[in-house]
Design a protein around this nucleic acid. Structure first.
Lengths: 208, 208
DNA sequence: CACTCCACATGACAAATGTCAGAGGGCCGT
DNA sequence: ACGGCCCTCTGACATTTGTCATGTGGAGTG
């Protein structure tokens, strides 16, 4: 019993880029067994549309205003367990994949695939299977697990926008010395030159 | 005499995201007066395709592997003066617009427009007019001109990836003291807290 | 229970960075 | 020719980081 037993797969399409979303909607509609029942241009809108139309599969862009694809996926998972969620993205950072999988996403594909291929993957996901782009999966595996402790990651994240230690300490409710220690250990664990390089590395690997 | 006097507008479509490019190609083909004569997935490929097919209008994505849209536009301008170039982008930073216009780009639109609208804009550009998304234009105007001197901008750029002063000094062939002075004045001109915030600001406004 | 992580802290020191003042030379416009 | 920018440099100083040693206390595990 995967969604409806017969009939077309009912899709929700969410992407803030009208051009892409419209084009995609047209192309996917060409497939006999796929029908777009709703479109959205932002995270919250996607959520609302999903509630209203209860699609079989939600195809979400990763980066949207309001709430990103993963956040939407998390909410969807709770509210509409019958709705499979898949994410389509331009920038395939390993971290996004990890977060997405943790949020119960069933499909994760880069926008470099063809519409044909996407349609196939939608069917795969609808059938109850999972699909992850092999390339992205390989990256994620190569990146491995974060060597950072929770606090180190938190402090590193607060340091991301170039804030001085004093501000980080305040925002994390830590002493400045502690912040510097965490930063220092994070930097050395990542083998980075300084905190900024460390932030970049951690971002690339999805550890923040 | 703009391109061919009659007949359909011959288009080159360049975008590294197969999904988008394919979808776009299909949608634009629906317009009677537009025909896609070539597609490309990278900067160099776009250039090669343009040489081979001499399209009337080249629709380029801003971010592509190999060479970004603006670089391609610059080359195209030199090699195929008859080919109008327009840029389509997801991320509309004012700086990109400025660079694009300087490279002789005739149209600059965000991917949030509809395909219908894009088709109209393609016609506008083909007719010899220019088109710039009003929103992006407003941002660019609001950002104004850079208050940074050439050197300040250069040093700030070298500082962008978190390199230490010593390295910046070496790469710019300046003394460390000079580098710190430039950095300092750039930071104060931009009203930033530190060099990193300054880099971010300058990037946003297209001053680097 | 001992052992090992982790969170959190302090204090001290070296290195990097930010800020000032000053100073010479070049280019441009009036 | 003069004043006004910009480029370049130096030296000195305060502040901010990065690094290290070291300590306490809690949580989890063998």
């Amino acid at each position: 019993m995967s969604g409806r037993t017969a009939g077309p797969v009912r899709l929700l399409l969410a992407d803030d880029e009208h051009l892409i979303r419209g084009a995609l909607a047209t192309l996917l509609s060409l497939e006999d067994d796929l029908v777009i029942v709703a479109e959205a241009a932002s995270g919250p809108e996607a959520l609302a549309m999903a509630r209203a139309h209860e699609p079989d599969v939600a195809v979400l862009d990763l980066q949207m205003p309001g709430a990103d694809g993963v956040k939407v996926a998390t909410s969807l998972r709770a509210e509409l367990p019958g709705c499979r969620v898949m994410i389509v993205t331009s920038h395939g950072r390993p971290g996004h994949l990890k977060r997405a999988l943790a949020a119960g996403v069933r499909g994760f594909v880069p926008k470099t695939v063809s519409a044909q291929r996407l349609a196939e993957i939608i069917r795969t996901v609808h059938a109850g299977n999972r699909y992850v782009d092999p390339e992205l999966a390989a990256d994620a595996i190569a990146a491995g697990d974060s060597p950072l402790t929770a606090r180190e990651a938190e402090v590193l994240e607060l340091a991301a926008d170039g804030a001085p230690v004093a501000e980080i300490a305040e925002r994390a409710a830590l002493s400045q010395g502690t912040v510097r220690n965490y930063l220092s250990s994070a930097v050395s664990k990542l083998g980075a030159e300084n905190r900024h390089a460390a932030v970049r590395l951690a971002r690339e690997r999805g550890w923040v």
